[in-house]
Design a protein around this nucleic acid. Structure first.
Lengths: 207, 207
DNA sequence: ATCTGATTGTGATATATGACACATTTTTTA
DNA sequence: TAAAAAATGTGTCATATATCACAATCAGAT
């Protein structure tokens, strides 16, 4: 009767090498609570992890891989807000800021993620100020970074925006000058905020 | 020898009618600590309250009045991120997300504000999880709202953006269908993200 | 009250960029 | 391997909007 659970590789938060900064400040008892209320899952490239508009039920921690955070705007036009890399949370802003989730998340490659029950997460915030502090740091950094990029986009032309995104991917996401991200030209244009055709033109110009 | 302190009207956080949601969950001892490390000040219309780029030393709580949050971008082009109304914090994102302050704040009218020492603020976060939780809610709501507006702006044309901003001011800031904000056309255009001339054109068209 | 400077409105113009159409290349499927 | 589908590149064109120039209006100071 335990076969279902045994078939899933049960992770252990206490010994996890990929803990977030916030989870690192939890004590053993709190880690145990987290462990009993989270589950590690593997996701295939292209799968939607979390959809905007649904009620918040779980917070998702990205243990390994790249994810795109996006919204579907007017005329079903997609705007990619950011590329999320390993050791990041998905849906934190929505968890604390609203009842429903605001952004959608899709796997850019095969992933390892952890689903965490939101009530346990909130309980930990309220009983451990250091944990809450680290989360505050996390969401504020996330906000500042994304705002910075969005505002830059609103003030630059095609070339500048393209260059900014390349720099962003190189320095903030891949941490390498030579990188390869599983992004189509279409997705790149949705991240830059220009048309697909113009993305192609800028690329051929830069080469 | 107490004349300096006596000359300033010393506020009392415990009995303050304009407490933030976060401060409302502090206990008497914590309110006392806050009280001893904050100071209420009056600001005249047009004054700069806080400048981007400087080291964070105080968090500022807006007790009364309207403030514009902005950054000076490329070619000294100003982008107004949002209009801040009473019972809001200034610089929270920067406090937790970085060492330096990211946005500038100017009084749109005569204000009452409270300067709060950042170390005391951080201490309260760490020792009171409920306080931290309320701050998380605050910064996340702020992020979601501002992102929503910025992304909308990036996907709409002049008319739509103008209409959005009018709605935003009416519903979110003034909470009234007939409102008058001390915003110049120039500032309105910096909030909408279009040129001053086009703002004038849209206004005459709508009338 | 009058002058001066700031703010605002309006017309003409240049241009960056989206949109369309279609060619080419790459990837997936059978 | 061939065929189909998806992704990408390129040329042309329409248009929304920034910019400039200047007129008109408003506000503050003397």
């Amino acid at each position: 009767m335990y076969s279902i659970y045994e078939s899933t590789e049960k992770s252990n938060c206490s010994v996890c090498k990929d803990k977030s900064c916030a989870v690192s400040v939890l004590n053993e008892k709190q880690l145990g609570l987290l462990n009993n209320n989270s589950r590690e899952i593997e996701i295939k490239k292209g799968e939607i992890i979390l959809r905007s508009g649904i009620l918040n039920s779980h917070i998702i921690y990205l243990k390994k891989g790249y994810v795109k955070e996006f919204i579907v705007g007017l005329n079903k036009k997609i705007k990619i807000l950011q590329i999320i890399k390993q050791r990041s949370y998905m849906g934190l802003h929505s968890l604390f800021g609203d009842k429903i989730n605001h952004y959608s998340y899709t796997a850019l490659e095969d992933l390892k993620i952890c689903y965490i029950d939101i009530n346990v997460f909130k309980k930990l915030v309220k009983e451990n100020g250091d944990f809450a502090y680290e989360l505050l740091v996390y969401v504020c950094k996330d906000s500042l970074n994304n705002f910075y990029r969005l505002i830059n986009q609103s003030q630059k032309n095609t070339n500048g925006r393209f260059a900014d995104v390349i720099l962003y991917l190189s320095e903030n996401i891949c941490n390498s000058q030579h990188f390869e991200l599983p992004l189509t030209r279409q997705e790149l244009s949705e991240l830059i905020g220009i048309s697909r055709e113009n993305t192609a033109r800028v690329i051929s110009k830069f080469k």
